Computed example of a mutant assay.
Amino acid sequence: MSELTVSRHFVEAALTGAQKKGFDIDALLLSAGISPDLLKIEMARVSSSQYSRLLQNIWNVMEDEFMGLGPRRCRTGTFATMCALIIDCPNLEAVYRQAFDFCRLFEPMVGMQLEQHGDEVKLVTVIEGEIDDPLHFFQESILVIWHRLGSWLVGQPVELVRAEFSYPEPAHGDEYRHIFHCPLAFNCSKTALTFSKRFLDAPVIRDKPEMRQFLKTSPADLLSRPDESNTYTGRIRALIGRDFSRSLPDFEWIAAELNTSPQTLRRRLKQENTSFQEIKDLLRRDMAIYYLARPDLAINDIAFKVGFTEPSTFHRAFKKWTGVTPGAYREGERGGPG
């Protein structure tokens, strides 16, 4: 079964603190099953499970959940302790207020604070002290973890109205569309996520055994595996399925399956910052990368599996997605020809 992939940018960004502090980057990559040679390919991607392992390895080796990027060290176990505290909260508002109070116990503080603005609520990043975060990975991680943790606790996606960033749009800004599924704004006064006030009343539906299970792979999984089951993007991915060797369902059929009109679905996808064509293309790309990691599959067979009748068309598409041919990509994943 193929899975979502993560851009090489986020792999390198996650390693910036460890690199500065002199840790063995190649060893960290290899322990997560990632070939260092793969990162020589500018548009390379890794699987979400590899990325999740890498993050856990970085936290454990550095003994720092801030990965050397924050204003101080954050000992491993801090996130789990916060989660043990907030699992007893009645609703999402209490979760975010309790989590903020927990973060205030540390100095300098790093957390997110709720601000109410009429019918909307802002979750605003509060970072005291100096951070060494040239690729904005630390700030992005805080946004993603707090948002996805809240969504997981209440068992539904907290739909974002807007994501704001206090810095200019970075070179990897296009990736944000697939992370936040909402309109983006850069050069803002604060880094914050805005959502409807109604989510604050959503009850916490998870219990302590579920939390224990969740913490075995968190917060790494929160960063690497977005729960897309409730976004239109995720639901369409699920409806398309994994078998591209047969003809794909058309947009009208998908809309009918989702009990909506094609016009409404188009509008919803626009709100999620994507399109039907892009969803299909990215699914093909992720599947192609997944299959290339299996040495038993010939490249021409992979072309057919991901829905290309002509291998030459597949080569062109793959080069557009990753900047290299399928053969060169496979060499990189294996560790290169020598």
Rank of each mutant, 00 (worst) to 15 (best):
F186A: 06
C188T: 09
P311W: 15
F66C: 03
C182S: 08
F100A: 03
P203Y: 09
P36F: 01
T233L: 14
G118M: 00
W146E: 08
I58W: 08
T194S: 12
I131D: 04
F199L: 14
A94L: 00
A171H: 02
F165L: 05
E310I: 13
C182V: 05
C89V: 02
C103D: 10
I142K: 06
R198E: 15
W253E: 13
P170K: 08
Q277F: 01
Q50T: 07
D119P: 03
L282A: 08
G118H: 00
P262K: 01
Q139E: 15
V204H: 12
M211Y: 01
T191Q: 14
L223F: 05
G338M: 00
G173R: 01
D64H: 07
T217N: 00
S2K: 08
R268G: 01
H117D: 05
Y96R: 01
V158D: 14
L105R: 12
T125Y: 10
I25P: 06
L200H: 13
S245V: 07
C188Q: 15
A27D: 12
C182Q: 01
I127E: 13
R242G: 12
L269D: 05
R267A: 10
V95N: 06
R198T: 15
T260E: 02
E278Y: 09
F314L: 14
N300R: 14
K319G: 11
A298H: 08
D201Y: 11
A303N: 04
G335R: 04
S218K: 02
M112T: 06
Y290C: 04
I131M: 12
E164N: 03
A256E: 13
P134L: 11
V324F: 11
L123M: 09
L29C: 03
T191A: 12
V95M: 00
L92P: 11
L30I: 06
L105C: 06
G336E: 00
Q213M: 06
A80Y: 04
W253Y: 11
L282F: 14
